[in-house]
Structures are given as structure tokens and as C-alpha cells.
Design a protein around this nucleic acid. Sequence first.
DNA 1: ATAGACATACCATCCGGTCGGTCGCCGCGC
DNA 2: GCGCGGCGACCGACCGGATGGTATGTCTAT
Lengths: 218, 218
Amino acid sequence: MQNTDGSERSATAPDRSLAVPDRLLSAASRLFAEQGFERTSVQELVSAAGVTKGAMYHYFTSKDDLLYAIYQRVLAMQMERLNRFAAAEGPARERLYAAAADVVHTTVDNLDDTRIFFRSLHMLSEDRQIAVRKERRQYHERFRAIVEEGRRHGAFRADVPADVAVTQYFGAVHHLSTWYRAGGELTGAQVGAYFADLLLAGLTPEDSGSARPPESTA
Amino acid sequence: MQNTDGSERSATAPDRSLAVPDRLLSAASRLFAEQGFERTSVQELVSAAGVTKGAMYHYFTSKDDLLYAIYQRVLAMQMERLNRFAAAEGPARERLYAAAADVVHTTVDNLDDTRIFFRSLHMLSEDRQIAVRKERRQYHERFRAIVEEGRRHGAFRADVPADVAVTQYFGAVHHLSTWYRAGGELTGAQVGAYFADLLLAGLTPEDSGSARPPESTA
DNA sequence: ATAGACATACCATCCGGTCGGTCGCCGCGC
DNA sequence: GCGCGGCGACCGACCGGATGGTATGTCTAT
């Protein structure tokens, strides 16, 4: 089954119930994650989606454009979720824990997109790379704000820069796509709980009474 | 200066004092990191190295082979350094700190290679991907062994799996190549100190007397 | 009949890899 | 000490194939 052209994939037939753009998006997400952006030809992509090139170029201006659409989808979702956690009630400590665990959970639930995110950023046009990075930075800032807030109330230690801690954490989250496998020993929620736990433990001041993070709901 | 062909790059002229294979390696490292493996044509590569295609195919069997050589170089160096720290004297806590800080330092010193490492792994042939992953796993195991050792002596908490902590840490280290910029606010050694500090803090048991890691030498 | 939603055939280009050939150097016989 | 042969290092024109993108046609719903 050598399949560089697009003659009917056996794996995961296209979902005919979806609209054409969505079919393309989900086929692209899967194939780009599996083989990488460059190794996936437009022909292969449209065949997997059960449409033709004409259809694809009707909705997307280029292969690049399709990739960018995937980025936008991920960015919007993650930002929306973070905002919900950040704006919730309760101490910074608990909100940070919830947000940190959640981002792991959703990352694991969308592993394909995440894998693409960091592997193929340099395949976007310069403009779009900048746009993506800008949104990503806003996301980090939002997250960091929670840390800063907790710091002002003495909930977190102040001898390590907040953005170093945040960057370290998201580095780890991003790399989930490299090693996490569905069906392994740990569920996404479990990994999220451990990750968030380690993050809070790392940020906890030496003399804190409640050194351990809140109980996990995993 | 549109330069898809290889007509004399202005940036970083090839170092004529190096042997041809080394010139190719260093040009490849730079270009693959800047533009990605696929976007770098063999022609562009050899021009940047100041040699011709014939020379390259004289020393390397394929473009893939050149990429693999870069992987081998990184893997060998990192493993060698880790072994030194692991086999040193002193408590596990201190050795872990030293090794954790060092891997950040060397990663920052070889940002191009690190960037390639995680961005282009899927461009290697299947066999070589497996070989790389295997070596990488050994590296992680070696690192994890230090954590396990400290755990047996009560130096580290036991309620988070060691490999989750280790994987989280290396995820963060790998992602340095995404955001770290030479000439920024922090030196590699400083980031290494912070990172290692956060790692140890996350692993420290609740009731530990010496909650803070050893002093940084950064 | 008009417009959008697709299909199909086609193209210019570029890319990795090859292969016959050149050049300089080194040992060797005389 | 000098011609000679051979050999590894390197050259660069060339090839087959694949790729992203386009141009034009067709079908259907209004």
C-alpha cells in the first residue's frame, strides 16, 4: 500500500456528513500530524478528505492557508478556555492549578493539532508566523498574570521570574505531543494533575503552610 | 536578495579552514535550523558550505544522512555530559541539580541543533527515527535513575512518578529552542539555574528541612 | 440565465540524486 | 629526480519525477 498519490486511503474514510471545508481541515490535521506538512501533498490531502483539488482551492487560497486555519482553530480554543479559568473565582493558587491542568487535558485531546503547532510553525509565511507568535504571547501573558497575582499575596515564591516558570511549564506541555500516546498508562487528566502539581510545588514558597496543591479532580 | 538557488550567501561565509564534511555539517545545522530541513535544498546547502553537490554526495549518502549526522553529534555530546554528572560524587540532589542545569546550558549553546532535533525528527527514515528515539530514551532513563536514587533516600517526593517529572523537565528544555534568544535578558547559565531550581523545588518532599536547592553558580 | 460549488486536465518549476570526468598528490621504478 | 600510473577528492551538467498551483469546464439550485 504505497500511497504517495491519493488513490483511496484505507485508514479513516472521510466523514461525508461534514461540510467540505471541515473535511479538509480534519484530514489536514491528521495527515500533517502524521507525516508533516511538507511530506503531505495537496493531492494526497484532498483524496483523504474525499474531495478534489478544485474544491480545496475554492475554499483555501493555498496549502499554507489551510495550515494557518488549523493554527487559528487551536489558538482560539486554548485562549477561550484559559480566559474562563483566569476569570473564575477563588485564590490564584487554585485558578492556576485548574488552568494548568486543563491545558494539559485539552492538549492531549487535540494531540494532532498540537504536534502540528510546533513542528510546522516555520512553514507558515512570515506574516502568519508573526501573527501566531503574537497570539501565543498574549496567551502566556494571561497565564503569567495569574502567577504574578498569587505572588503579590505571598502564595508563590518571588525568587524565580514568573515568565521563566511559565515558559518552562508550557515547554513541557507542548512536548506532550512528542511522547504522549493515547491508550498509554496515564489519561490526559492524570498527566494534567501531575503536571499542575509539579508546577505549583515548584512555585510554592519555602515557609508556606499549605505546601501541597489542591486535590486533583482527575 | 532572494536566494533559493545557491548563488553566494552574504551571511556567514563558509569557514575554509574546516574540512569539507565539517563545513557541510555546520552549514546544514544553521540552514536546517533557520528554514527547516525541507525548505533547504541540497544546492543551497552546498553553496553555503562553499562546496559542490559532488563533494557532499562523496561524504554523505543522502540529504537524510546529513541530517542524521547532526542527530548523532547532539546525542553523543549530551549523553557524554550526563554520564559525567551522573557518575560524580555527592548526594543525588546535587548531582541532579548539576545535570539539570548543565543540559540547559549546553542546549542554549547549541540552539540550532536542538531546534532541528525536535522539528525534523519525522524527516528521518523510519529506521533512523527509531534509533534516535532509542538513544533518547536511554538518556532519559539515565536521568531518571538519579531521581529514583534520591527518592530511595527520601530526598525527593514519591507521590509523582519520576518519569512524569523527568519528561516534563525535558519538554521544557527542548522548547528552549523556540523562545530562547542569545543576547536576551538571561544567559544560558541563568536559565539553567532557574530551571534546575524549579525542578528540585517541584520534587522536594513537603517536610524536607533543606527545601531549597544548592546555590547556583550562575 | 446566473452564480457559486466543485471537477479535471495540465503546466512550469524545482529537487534529490547520479555519473562521467578532472585535478592534484603520492609512491615507485629507473 | 623524474616520468608514470593510479587513486581518492571533488566537479557540475543532467535526469526523472513529483509538486503546488491554475485554467477551464460542468452541474445544480435559485
